[in-house]
Amino acid sequence: MPTPTETVPITEAAGRILAEDVAAALPVPPFSNSAMDGFLVHLADLEGQGPWTLPVAGDVPAGAQAVAVPAGQAVRIMTGAPTGEDTGGLTVIPVEDTTLPAGPVPLPAEVTITAAPTAPRHIRARGENIAIGEAAVPAGARVDAGALAALVSVGALEVPVFRRPRVTVIATGDELVAAGRLPGAGQIPDSNSPMLARLVEETGLAGVRELRVGDAPGAFTQAIAEARESSELIITSGGVSAGAFDVVKEALSGTDVWFGKVAMQPGKPQGLGRVGDAAILCLPGNPVSSFVSFHLFALPVIQALAGLKAEPRPWLRARLSGELPAPRGRDLFVPARLSLAGSPVVGSATGGRFGSHFVASLTGVNALVHRGVDEGPAADGDTVLVTPL
């Protein structure tokens, strides 16, 4: 279920998901206006063989009020300037179809027109794009740059959106050392916390904070109790296998959280469920496993919480650069670098080798190659199935 809704000013709506259709309060265009720099004239004054010379009765720059066009005369008009709503029989003659130079020049006393249309042209009618009351942006749409422009144009001052989900990332392990510090003997850098937090931030859909706990069940239980009160989603990494110190699995046993094995490599051990009102995803601790699992499992949950409608993940075929091993009893998901310049080409981020601990090979990864459990090894030049990230 998505988060509750709230109403925000349009100036704060970027990146949010609309909870309701937004109808136009203004038409687009808001008034009839010129599509060209030129001269507004009556078509009836351009009959017969040209050229036609007409006195210039006025000037309408953008932002000015419309000026009535007297019969037998012309009004200079700029692109976007109002033509007035009674445009029957009027047309705009582009400056290029006159003897006057383009650009900023003084208002001439008269204009000579060298070419004329046979029907009204270059006038954008009020509301021809959208009329007042019509749905401008539908519920479930993300307020990206295009939607934001549309909302502003139709006069939306505030919009109903789903509240931004709150995500807590919890890394577990006595061996972990926070980013910015060098590990001592038996310790390893905690790469999962900043990686997962950044992956959440990159969605643009949710806020995120990080917690780090050791292998003591009490400390983890306390962290979960805190996170469940302030988050819609908790993501843990590590502690879900069958080891003697797998604190996540131990602390959440007997709760509404499932732990089991998924037939995929990397990312075999997984957990999911609820703690209180918060959803929880328990990802494996190996960094590449966490990276792959986030994209396959955590991202759809964040999108649903944010109010986005579920859509199938896109897949495409690409030519493989390099080689891939055969899956070993499980579907294989290989972090890869995809190029769409010309024919799609993809290469494994880890070269011919593969390991769920190869975190140093994640730089530039923008895709996953999927190899089904029944597929054999893939050779250089083979066509493989890829999902962009």
Rank of each mutant, 00 (worst) to 15 (best):
A131Y: 01
A131L: 10
A131D: 09
I132P: 00
I132C: 03
G133L: 07
E134Y: 02
E134W: 06
P138T: 11
P138C: 01
A139E: 02
A139F: 00
G140F: 01
A141M: 03
A141S: 15
A141R: 01
R142G: 01
V143K: 04
V143I: 15
D144R: 12
A145D: 15
A145V: 13
A145Q: 13
A147H: 08
A147W: 02
L148T: 00
L148R: 04
L148D: 10
L148P: 01
A149H: 11
A149R: 14
A150S: 15
A150L: 14
L151C: 11
V152K: 15
V152C: 13
V152M: 15
V152F: 13
V152R: 15
S153Y: 03
S153Q: 14
S153R: 15
V154N: 03
V154R: 02
G155V: 11
G155A: 13
L157V: 14
L157W: 05
L157K: 13
E158N: 05
E158S: 14
E158F: 01
E158R: 00
V159N: 05
P160V: 00
P160Y: 04
F162I: 02
F162Q: 00
F162E: 00
R163V: 08
R163E: 15
R164W: 01
R164G: 03
R164C: 04
R164I: 02
R164D: 04
R164P: 01
P165M: 06
P165E: 06
R166C: 05
R166H: 13
V167N: 10
T168S: 14
T168G: 05
V169C: 04
V169T: 07
A171S: 15
A171D: 10
A171K: 05
A171E: 09
A171V: 14
T172F: 09
T172P: 04
T172N: 07
G173W: 12
G173F: 13
G173I: 10
E175H: 08
E175Q: 08
V177H: 08
A178D: 12
A179N: 09
A179M: 12
A179V: 06
A179G: 08
G180K: 09
G180H: 06
R181G: 00
R181T: 02
R181E: 11
L182K: 10
L182S: 13
P183R: 10
P183I: 05
P183C: 06
A185I: 07
A185C: 03
G186L: 05
I188E: 12
I188G: 02
I188F: 03
P189G: 06
P189R: 14
